[in-house]
């Protein structure tokens, strides 16, 4: 029974990791640009969630996901428009890395200055104790909601990108920026909105993560690492691969913790290493000749 329990909880955590990664994957796919400060935005969203729920006593933090996601869409849009667009079109590979790396340090220290190093978490009220019993297996309600949200996000994103006019513009821009411009697409606008979506997903992931574990202003790097591992395992640019990659990492973490309670997220990295070793193109990536 403990295996069923581990499996279900691993999948639920994995869904969350999938959301963590897919925002980053979207940005990499559309802009060929790696946002190293992605992890800091995840932590910022968690802080916003903590302070908002302290102000709104009695409101379930799950409801806060919607306004915080909307806020971070706006934040992502503005940061891209004001800052990141300066380097996205640059031919120099180092520009984006230096800018976003520097920005991540600025954000980290700003959060440290404002909030200190206290370890925090977001309490989900009575929800975190609720569980459903199926025979001898009990499943937490919060992990289940997390998984449902993750899958809903993936489906919504997939539909938006494959079926809408703006989704086509995103794919066209990812394929060939100049040709997309010839059709009347303004790349910077596509980038701003894409970053908005990526940050909204980072915000949701950050808050859900804060509900199940703790965080400090310096948790960003660990989040970025997991997000990277998710998209590398999934195969670059593959949405469903990112979800699958998330599942694998979530399972690795919880099964690892079961046998080795002091391991932290060590077994996540072991699983990542194993995939890279035996299937370098990722689980759903196309094998390069």
């Amino acid at each position: 029974m403990v295996w069923v329990d581990l499996f279900i909880n691993g999948i639920c955590l994995g869904g969350l990791y999938g959301v963590l990664g897919v925002g980053l994957a979207l940005v990499v796919g559309v802009m060929r640009f790696v946002n190293i400060s992605h992890g800091e935005f995840i932590v910022m969203a968690a802080f916003v969630g903590v302070f908002a729920s302290a102000q709104l006593v009695g409101v379930n933090p799950l409801w806060l996901l919607i306004p915080v996601a909307a806020l971070f869409f706006f934040v992502g849009y503005v940061v891209q428009a004001v800052l990141f667009n300066c380097v996205v079109t640059a031919p120099d590979l180092f520009g984006p890395i230096l800018l976003t790396f520097g920005f991540s340090i600025v954000l980290q220290n700003a959060m440290f200055e404002l909030f200190g190093t206290d370890v925090r978490s977001l309490t989900a009220g009575g929800l975190s104790r609720l569980s459903i019993s199926l025979g001898s297996v009990s499943i937490g309600v919060l992990p289940l909601i997390t998984l449902a949200l993750a899958i809903a996000f993936f489906v919504a994103l997939q539909l938006a990108i494959s079926r809408t006019a703006f989704g086509r513009a995103i794919r066209a821009t990812a394929d060939n920026r100049d040709v997309a411009r010839l059709m009347g697409v303004k790349p910077t606008r596509v980038f701003n909105i894409t970053m908005g979506f990526a940050m909204a997903m980072a915000a949701v992931a950050g808050m859900l993560l804060a509900m199940r574990s703790t965080f400090t202003p310096f948790s960003g790097l660990a989040n970025l690492l997991v997000a990277f591992e998710v998209i590398v395992i999934g195969g670059f640019g593959s949405f469903w691969g990112a979800l699958l990659g998330g599942f694998l990492l979530g399972l690795a973490q919880l099964i690892g913790l079961h046998f080795d309670p002091d391991a932290g997220i060590f077994y996540v990295h072991v699983a990542f290493f194993a995939v890279v070793l035996f299937r370098p193109q990722g689980l759903m990536g196309i094998k390069l000749p």
């Binding site: 086509r168 794919r171 066209a172 990812a174 394929d175 060939n176 100049d178 040709v179 010839l182």
Partner: peptide, 10 residues
């Protein structure tokens, strides 16, 4: 455009 440059993922 020269070389057609269709969007290959569409």
């Amino acid at each position: 455009p020269e070389g057609r440059l269709l969007f290959q993922n569409m």
